[in-house]
Nucleic acid binder design. Sequence first.
DNA 1: GTGAAAGCGCTAACAC
DNA 2: GTGTTAGCGCTTTCAC
Lengths: 329, 329
Amino acid sequence: MIDVAHLAGVSVKTVSRVVNHTPTVDAALTERVLEAIRELGFRRNDVAANLRSGRNTSTIGLVIEDLSNTFYSTIAAAVFEVSHRFNTQLITASSEETTSLEEEIVLDLCQRRVDGLIIVPTGNDQSYLQPEIDMGLPVVFVDRPPAGLNVDSVLIDNRKGARAAVEQLLSEGHRKIAVMVDSLHIYTMRERLIGAEEALCAAEVPPEDHIFEAWPHEPSDAAGVVAHLFDSPSPPTAVFCGNNRILMGAVAELVRRGEKTRVAGFDDFEFAGLLPHPVTVVGYDTPALGTLAAELLFRRIHGETLPPKHELLPTYLAERGIPPARRYG
Amino acid sequence: MIDVAHLAGVSVKTVSRVVNHTPTVDAALTERVLEAIRELGFRRNDVAANLRSGRNTSTIGLVIEDLSNTFYSTIAAAVFEVSHRFNTQLITASSEETTSLEEEIVLDLCQRRVDGLIIVPTGNDQSYLQPEIDMGLPVVFVDRPPAGLNVDSVLIDNRKGARAAVEQLLSEGHRKIAVMVDSLHIYTMRERLIGAEEALCAAEVPPEDHIFEAWPHEPSDAAGVVAHLFDSPSPPTAVFCGNNRILMGAVAELVRRGEKTRVAGFDDFEFAGLLPHPVTVVGYDTPALGTLAAELLFRRIHGETLPPKHELLPTYLAERGIPPARRYG
DNA sequence: GTGAAAGCGCTAACAC
DNA sequence: GTGTTAGCGCTTTCAC
């Protein structure tokens, strides 16, 4: 910057003004400075600019479970879109469902002085963030609520969605319904299980007909569970899957066996319409999760002080999968 | 930091040493400093630390087309993994297939003094990066080569992959093969089209039987193209789709019409195994694209100076989709 | 082993 | 409208 000032024959401050588009600079000088900048290939060091001005770093952090998962990458894309609207860069990180990594990454982001944080929590305690929040760091939680912290969150109405799906199965006369969920360490899985249970209880299905199968983390695990269920003497007549990966694994196995079981599952996705088996899915507006969280975050970053908000997004039921008549072969 | 030094009764320099884990600090002093840090809730400002030390910012940038696309988010996850191994944060940004946005984002990242850049180029000219590269900024291109720049790139062997798929269709006796690709502005689509054409020419398929259909950007567009093709007096007996989205749209329409056409397509994906129609897919190791690019980038960041490397990842052919006999209904 | 002073690249405050 | 000076929070240099 000093070099630029020399070459243009002005002071550093004038260069600074030109770089920052301060309106009160003589046009002739501006031109000379711009010329010098071009000649020297100068580019303002934002790190230094930020340090002195003490302003925002124009950077936010997004900590999610797994960037390669469609659900989270859709959220990331939505957050990026809002972030870009506010001229802010987005640092993304995967916590890989590991508590220690979550804390490590979050604290690193704090040291880099991000303007705010959007987090899908993995651990069962986020109180390590309390000091930062007290010092004014805006934080919004997405998909799962924080533990030990009272801050903004944007969640899906998992319970009502799961309940609606199971009620649909019950209304069609099914009584033996297998409910398959991923690890109950995950908030959304617990909620969906509760929703399903609510529906079963309300319909007075006897407890011995409630079939819960937990922990099929990979689609192939779900396939194994389905195989086990349908090899049993009295298999279920309907299956409710706690997420899209379980749904895919279950459908794969049911199709392999030629079972024409009634299937429902949480998560609507682009591919659902092509599933080789009819399914009822619980859908919701995934990008909205990210958009709402980011907009909430930027309101906080811009100084708005309202009590913590807790958004709960609604779900819908939809029919997906190829109708049997239309299938190849 | 000054406050911490005061409270601990030491100099700022000693605090700095403790924070940076310098081994030559008295244990008793270290303890006092750590105590003061805890009491004051101090956290080192990485922005300032970086400014003075002039070292790396421990930040790299990843500019891709669309974060919500499975292909790119898989790359992003792989890049993150490597990046985390090197204690580096990852700034991700979507260029949304817009030339101007790409340049804007990239230049912003340069101003923030990222240590390196991984880019899926969107525009047809990246020479705007030449000054930065000359000043030592490591840059690696992924999935598409740069234009106007001679730097590292990691690509898929699109041409050979497409050629292999079309050769497979030809070997089964198909002569009227429809080749459907997305916009030819995209490098990968041009390459895949060329690969397909090579196969058709080598098999001496008369030019009037080469059917090219370009620009179905959304799956529904692909469905429309398929509808058009099969409503014609002499429809193709086989279809080759330039990417997974086109494949999905084409399969949807073929299934809807009950056509039992032979289908092949570029891209292998988790869901391909559940497609309600047999397909031959051209697959490749997507995470490897990101991993290789990131590892190459970090070698450059760590000072290795080798001539620009151009990696070309191999493809494979695989059979996907549900076998007809196993299908529901 | 520890501290004092200088300075990274820039901008805020104020003088001209 | 423009230049000068000080200083953001830290680390480097070098003396102790």
